[in-house]
Amino acid sequence: MSLQTDTIPASAQQNNFANIVNSRQQMVYNTALSIVQNEADAEDITQEVFIKVYEKLAEFRGDAALDTWLYRIAVTTAFDFLKQQKAQKRGGFLKRVFGMATENDVPHFDHPGVALDKKEDARVLFMAISKLPDNQRAAFVLNRIEGLPNKEIATILDITLAAAESLQIRAKNNLRTVLKTYYEKHFK
């Protein structure tokens, strides 16, 4: 989708923005929700993403697809939010420096879009996803939850196609390891 917003009058730009919000809110919210795994935080991130979009809409020349651009902003904003949240935790910095950070392996997040009979398994999977490194997490979420092909993921994350594929494989292997460790501990 090509947007030449610098020549569009203000009212038309407002309409354009409203259309973008209405048509893409689900996409942005869902991406943010899968990354931060908290509905209230995902709402805040969605708002922040669209505010950034509004501010930068005039600069957007349509070199990339609108969806790709939105996904990139959503992923970056979500990870920035997580970094900020980690930094704000009391004593978080000292705990990280001295290696005292405790890993949270309690499944807590229920994605509202998961079928009822798969809720428990999905909860454990989301706990495992939260332990992945940022780039692997982004690649996995965009591929498995958003259903994007590796080529588009490569464009969003600004990496090569081979790197995107490699991220997918490493993410799946790491998830398998985390899940096995979890079930070995908790499954009788």
Binding site: Q26, Q47, F50, H111, V114, K118, A122, L179
Partner: peptide
Amino acid sequence: KTADALNSIAGIVPAMPAPFLLTRL
């Protein structure tokens, strides 16, 4: 169980944000 967990998000339905997002924006 590991395979079940990995496949649990197959066919996931996209979640919707709370209504009136544009107004809140």
